[in-house]
């Protein structure tokens, strides 16, 4: 085992190397994190530490005054804490030292190591973990500088590459398209046809971005009542859709109807009544709920499941293409952060 740069070490158990069953064993709640911090800092050789605990990863960054034995101290503490065999622990955990540990922190925070490449949620989780570590007093000069400079690198990556650009799940793609048509969604009204899961998810995603007027239509009045009670909105009877369709700007349909609910003939009257206001039809049904002829009408935008999936796929490809450039930035920045730490006498003191 190399002790070069051993003053800063990282132990990580994450989705890239360990199965979900094994990861579950390392999952901690807030009080357990506090306990682990306390146990680690019982050793006089552990000077600073930062624990990051999410559903996909357990990570421990430690500054030790004993680079030669620091790793053993940390492994022993973890072994006692998790009551796990040391060989098993070593087989689950990966270790990084010095600039490699910093690079890992940057890559994780920027979403490069996430299951969904480029997702932004992880950055918030790292910030929360750092805030907790600071509040408990386990962050010292090294952790503070490493994290703060690391965050600057994360912002650089997210601002200068398309790593976080474009939505990669179908519901969010539909929301993005809605915003490209209507701008702010707080003035739009949404009709959800069918009470299936994907319709619900899309409605929730629209709601989270400002849409707050919902109608829920179903063949069964009872189901429409139940869904509207659960999701919020007003129940509608699908049988007389023509009488109220005009009131809605976005229509999401996910029923298993064998014949299209809407076609160009029905829609033409509604479009005329809307006086050029665009209508966004999102067809999540299989077979399709809206006749493809609807698409030919001006001011009507029709997207089906395949269209949305294709956009999500293209966005994901673009994100993956940005990984290489992002890793280069992480590499450069981690080296420069390490040099800065060296110049301040915070590392390399063996």
């Amino acid at each position: 085992m190399s002790f070069h740069h051993g003053e800063l070490l990282l132990i990580t158990v994450n989705h890239e190397t360990v199965s979900m069953e094994d990861r579950e064993r390392y999952s901690l709640d807030e009080s357990q994190i506090r306990t682990l911090y306390q146990r680690l800092h019982r050793s006089p050789d552990i000077e600073e530490s930062l624990i990051l605990n999410t559903c996909n990863r357990f990570e421990l960054y430690t500054k030790t005054s004993d680079p030669r034995n620091g790793i053993s101290i940390v492994f022993k503490t973890l072994q006692d804490f998790y009551k796990i065999d040391i060989q098993e622990l070593e087989s689950h955990a990966s270790t990084r030292y010095g600039p490699e540990a910093i690079k890992h922190l940057i890559e994780v925070s920027a979403g490069l190591r996430s299951q969904i490449t480029g997702e932004a949620e992880i950055f918030g989780q790292v910030k929360e973990a750092y805030a907790m570590c600071q509040n408990l007093g386990y962050a010292g000069k090294l952790i503070n500088r490493m994290v703060q400079k690391g965050f600057q690198a994360v912002k650089l990556i997210r601002n200068s590459t398309p790593i976080g650009e474009g939505q990669i799940n179908i519901s969010n793609v539909a929301v993005d398209l809605s915003m490209k048509i209507f701008g702010a969604l707080h003035k739009t009204s949404v009709l959800i046809i069918g009470t299936g899961e994907i319709g619900e998810k899309t409605a929730k995603a629209l709601n989270s971005r400002g849409a707050n007027e919902f109608g829920i239509a179903s063949h069964s009045s009872e189901r429409a009542e139940i869904a509207s009670h659960r999701w919020g909105g007003s129940p509608r009877n699908l049988e007389n859709i023509q009488s109220y369709l005009n009131e809605y700007d976005i229509v999401i349909s996910s029923t298993d109807a064998e014949r299209p609910i809407l076609d160009a003939r029905v829609l033409s009257e509604i479009v005329r009544a809307r006086k050029n206001r665009p209508l966004f039809l999102i067809d999540l049904g299989m077979p399709r709920n809206f006749d493809p002829s609807c698409e030919e009408m001006e001011d009507v935008f029709l997207y089906n499941l395949d269209d949305l999936a294709e956009i999500a796929e293209a966005n994901l490809k673009e994100r993956k293409a940005a990984i290489k450039r992002s890793e280069e930035i992480a590499d450069q920045k981690s080296v420069s952060i390490w040099r800065m730490l060296e110049s301040r006498g915070l590392v390399n003191f063996q």
Binding site: L177, M179, K180, G183, D307, A314
Partner: peptide
């Protein structure tokens, strides 16, 4: 340009950077 991209489902080019149709 934006309307055409939305109609033809072509999300490349200037599409991501152009404002919404309403704006």
């Amino acid at each position: 340009l934006q309307s055409r991209s939305l109609k033809q489902k072509k999300m490349g080019g200037f599409f991501p950077f152009l404002p919404s149709l309403f704006e």
